[in-house]
Every structure is written in C-alpha cells, then in structure tokens.
C-alpha cells in the first residue's frame, strides 16, 4: 500500500516536472517563432518608431531654421523620432 503511494507520488512529480518543461519549451518556441517571423510585440513597436519619417528635426541654437512648424512647443518637436525602445520583461 505504501509502495503504491510512493509510486503514485513519483508519477505525479514526473507529470508536474515534465509538464513544466514542456510548457517552457512551448513558450520558448512561440516567442522565438513570433520574433523570427517579425511579429514580436516589442520589436514590432521598435521598428515602427525607427521608421518614422524625419519630417522635422530639432535644430541647434544659432542655426537658421527653415521649419514651418510653430515654435511654441517648448523646444521639442512633436514629430521628432522617438528613441528606439523595446518593451521587455
């Protein structure tokens, strides 16, 4: 009776460990796959921000500006490209 209990314990432990390892491999494969295929949520955002057109750039002081946008934005251009960032955890 006790031996059967130990056997069942071993089976359940194996089930838990195997299931966890399988879940890890599946999660790794999904994340890897979406990254390789270009569907990664974080890298997708990064690509978008990097490919924004550089319509206006921040001008340094003393240079002549051809910029037609209003200059009352506190010095920061609203359409200046955002730094490439990825959301990670």
């Amino acid at each position: 009776m006790k031996a059967r209990g130990e056997e069942r314990k071993r089976t359940l432990r194996r089930l838990g460990i195997t299931g966890t390892i399988a879940a890890f491999l599946a999660a790794w494969a999904i994340v890897f796959g979406q990254l390789v295929l270009g569907h990664d949520p974080a890298l997708g955002k990064s690509k978008t921000s990097q490919s924004q057109p550089k319509a206006t750039t921040t001008q340094s002081e003393g240079t002549t500006s051809n910029d037609t946008t209003s200059g009352d934005d506190g010095g920061s251009s609203p359409s200046s490209p955002a730094p490439a960032t990825t959301s990670q955890s």
Binding site: F24, A27, V31, F32, L35, Q88
Partner: peptide, 14 residues
Amino acid sequence: WITSRAAGIVALSA
C-alpha cells in the same frame, strides 16, 4: 530575452 520571457510565462502559468 526569449528565455526570460518563456520562463516568466511558465512561472505565471505554473
């Protein structure tokens, strides 16, 4: 990063 994400997903699920 992929490994960390997969491990985080497994940690939360388990």
